[in-house]
Simulated assay, not measured.
Amino acid sequence: MIDTEGDCAAWTFPADPGTVRAARSAVRDRLRDWGLDSVGDLTALLVSELVTNALRYATGPVGVRLVRPSDLDGVLLVEVSDRLPDFPHERVARPDDEGGRGLQLLDSASRRWGARPGDEGKTVWFELAVP
């Protein structure tokens, strides 16, 4: 499901393994349509991490929302929502760990990020500066 309104795009994806690929593809396509290819790969990677976490720990659908940067701020806002109310916790992954680096990657690659409670769960958001 997609909802677009000019400077906004939002999708709701089912809780199944194909969701990560579908979310990456939808994000890349929308950013390409907006002429923001320069942040397409990084945005898709970070969305993949957050959607994967949502699928691993929450139940139900996963929402993804993009807000196009205005001429004034030059910042792309990305949000990933799920039904789990618990906020994500950054952990330090050991060199041989298979996972646990998603939030570290988000922290190092984004301008800033955070989480906020929602009506039915939470939203993890991040901002990327758009050149």
Rank of each mutant, 00 (worst) to 15 (best):
R111T: 04
W113I: 04
G74M: 12
G74L: 14
D96T: 11
E98A: 15
V80W: 04
Q104H: 09
R91E: 14
G100H: 04
V78N: 10
S108R: 08
E98R: 12
G114T: 01
D97V: 01
L105S: 03
Q104Y: 04
D73H: 08
P95I: 09
H89G: 12
S81I: 04
A109W: 00
R68W: 04
A109N: 00
G74Q: 12
E90T: 11
L76K: 03
P69L: 07
S70G: 15
R101F: 12
D73M: 05
H89F: 13
D97I: 02
L105H: 01
W113G: 03
D96W: 12
L84G: 07
P117M: 09
D86Q: 14
R83G: 15
L106G: 05
L103S: 05
R116V: 10
D86K: 11
S70N: 03
V75W: 08
L103E: 03
F87H: 13
R68L: 10
L84S: 12
R101G: 05
S81C: 09
V64T: 02
D82T: 07
G99I: 07
A93L: 11
A109C: 14
L66S: 04
E90N: 05
D82Q: 09
L84V: 07
R94S: 14
T59F: 08
R94W: 10
L76R: 02
L72A: 15
S70W: 03
D71H: 06
L77I: 07
R91A: 14
R101L: 14
E120G: 02
E120L: 11
A115M: 02
R116C: 06
W113L: 05
D73G: 06
L84I: 06
G60K: 04
L76A: 08
R101V: 12
G114C: 05
G63W: 03
D107P: 00
T59G: 13
